[in-house]
Simulated scan of single mutants.
Amino acid sequence: MSQKDLNLRQRRWLELLKDYELVIDYHPGKANVVADALSRKLLFVLRAMNTQLKISGDGSILVEIRARPMFLQEIFEAQKNDEDLLAKRKQCEADMGSDFRIGSDGCLMFKNRICVPKNDELIQRILYEAHNGCLAVHPGSTKMYNDLKKMYWWSGMKRDISEFVSKCLVCQQVKAEHQVPSGLLQPIMVPEWK
Rank of each mutant, 00 (worst) to 15 (best):
L86Q: 10
R66G: 08
D19I: 04
C171T: 07
P69W: 09
D25E: 15
K175S: 13
S98R: 05
W153A: 00
I161W: 04
I161N: 02
C115H: 02
M189Q: 14
S155A: 11
A48Y: 09
V116G: 02
L8Y: 12
C171P: 01
T51G: 05
K18L: 11
Q124A: 10
A176R: 14
C168D: 02
N32S: 12
V174K: 13
N81Q: 12
F76A: 12
K194I: 11
F164H: 09
Y20F: 10
D58G: 02
I55Y: 10
K4N: 12
G156P: 03
L135T: 10
C92A: 07
D120E: 15
C107M: 10
H131L: 02
C168S: 03
T51N: 05
I188V: 15
L148G: 00
N146A: 07
M70T: 15
Y128E: 08
I65N: 05
K194Q: 13
D82I: 05
M157A: 00
G59I: 01
Q173P: 03
R113H: 01
I102P: 03
M96L: 11
E177N: 13
E83K: 11
K4G: 09
N81A: 10
F76T: 10
R40D: 10
H138C: 01
Q124P: 02
I24D: 11
L85W: 00
Y152A: 00
V137A: 09
A94E: 08
W193P: 06
S98I: 07
A136P: 00
G133M: 01
D84L: 11
V33N: 04
G156R: 04
R9V: 12
R89W: 09
R9T: 12
E121R: 13
G103T: 04
T142A: 05
L108V: 04
S39N: 09
K194E: 14
A37R: 15
I188Q: 11
